[in-house]
Amino acid sequence: GCPDADAALLMLHRMSRYIPHFIALSASSPYVQGQDTAFDSARLNSVFAFPLSGRAPCVLTWGEFENYFDKMTGTGVVKSMKDFYWDIRPKPEFGTIEIRVFDTPLTIERAAALSGYVQSLAAWFLDTQPFTPSEDDYLVYTYNRFQACRFGLEAVYVDPGTGRHQPLREHILHTMDQIASHAARQGAAPSLHLLRTDVEKGQNDARWLRDRQREEQLLAETSRQAAMRFRGQPI
């Protein structure tokens, strides 16, 4: 949730720098039609095929966004917000922004932890206003997005502000340190602890699925075990 419409757009574009975090931490779609795609999140390749996918335009006030929306509806291509398949989009009827890059986690606990991570980032943004988004943030957006989809936690991350190249895992851990006090105030410290443990191990659900498939040599059995894991049943 966001306090007002302008804050929602600022939040949206600040969150865009962290899209690779969300992809790598939630990645759980390495297989398509029984084949390993070599991507940790192959699902997003399908979404990216839509003409209005990708990123939102870098406008930072609701008035500017309304003008953009009016122009798009005037083309006849867009009728509602649902026609935008952006990685993050505003949700005016709820007063929220909607982050759409997450794969389905294989446990309820991981889903809750990812929510806690987003909540902690949002609290940090609102409390400290750590940077002002700009169009130049998006110069490396598609590159960072691809890296996270392809390599997961082993990806390279290019910092939009400095141009520095670093392991994505390193950037995630540094971010977790930055937002730790905000996570504690939101009651999300256990969320960060769960995710940090997996980041330090280089473990996400895509890796878990590949490990199971390597052991079982039968994707149907891997899928069965994944379903059991989601139900909280012993494997």
Rank of each mutant, 00 (worst) to 15 (best):
Asp4Gly: 10
Ala5Ile: 01
Ala8Ser: 14
His13Tyr: 03
Tyr18Arg: 10
Pro20Thr: 04
Phe22Lys: 01
Ala24Met: 07
Leu25Phe: 06
Leu25Ile: 08
Ser29Ile: 02
Tyr31Ala: 08
Gln35Asn: 10
Gln35Lys: 14
Asp36Val: 13
Thr37Leu: 11
Ala38Met: 14
Ala38Phe: 13
Ser41Asp: 08
Ser41Thr: 11
Leu44Arg: 00
Asn45His: 02
Arg55Asp: 03
Cys58Met: 15
Val59Ser: 04
Thr61Met: 06
Glu64Met: 04
Asn67Val: 09
Phe69Asn: 06
Asp70Ile: 09
Thr73Cys: 13
Gly76Ile: 01
Val77Ser: 07
Asp83Pro: 03
Phe84Glu: 03
Trp86Gln: 05
Phe94Tyr: 05
Gly95Trp: 13
Thr96Ser: 13
Glu98Trp: 04
Arg100Val: 07
Val101His: 09
Val101Asn: 06
Pro105Asp: 01
Leu106Ala: 06
Ser120Pro: 07
Ser120Glu: 12
Asp127His: 10
Thr128Glu: 15
Thr128Asn: 08
Phe131Asn: 11
Thr132Tyr: 11
Tyr143Trp: 04
Tyr143Cys: 01
Asn144Val: 11
Asn144Arg: 11
Gln147Pro: 02
Phe151Asn: 12
Gly152Val: 12
Tyr157Phe: 15
Val158Ser: 05
Val158Asn: 11
Gly161Asn: 11
Gly161Leu: 15
Gly161Trp: 11
Gly163Cys: 09
His165Thr: 06
Leu173Asp: 00
Ser181Tyr: 06
Gly187Val: 12
Gly187Thr: 10
Pro190Phe: 13
Ser191Lys: 09
Leu192Ser: 03
His193Met: 10
Leu195Thr: 04
Val199Glu: 00
Asp205Met: 03
Asp205Lys: 05
Ala206Phe: 10
Arg207Met: 12
Leu209Glu: 03
Arg210Gln: 05
Arg214Val: 00
Glu215Ile: 00
Glu215Val: 01
Leu218Pro: 00
Gln225Tyr: 12
Ala227Val: 09
Pro234Thr: 14
Ile235Ser: 14
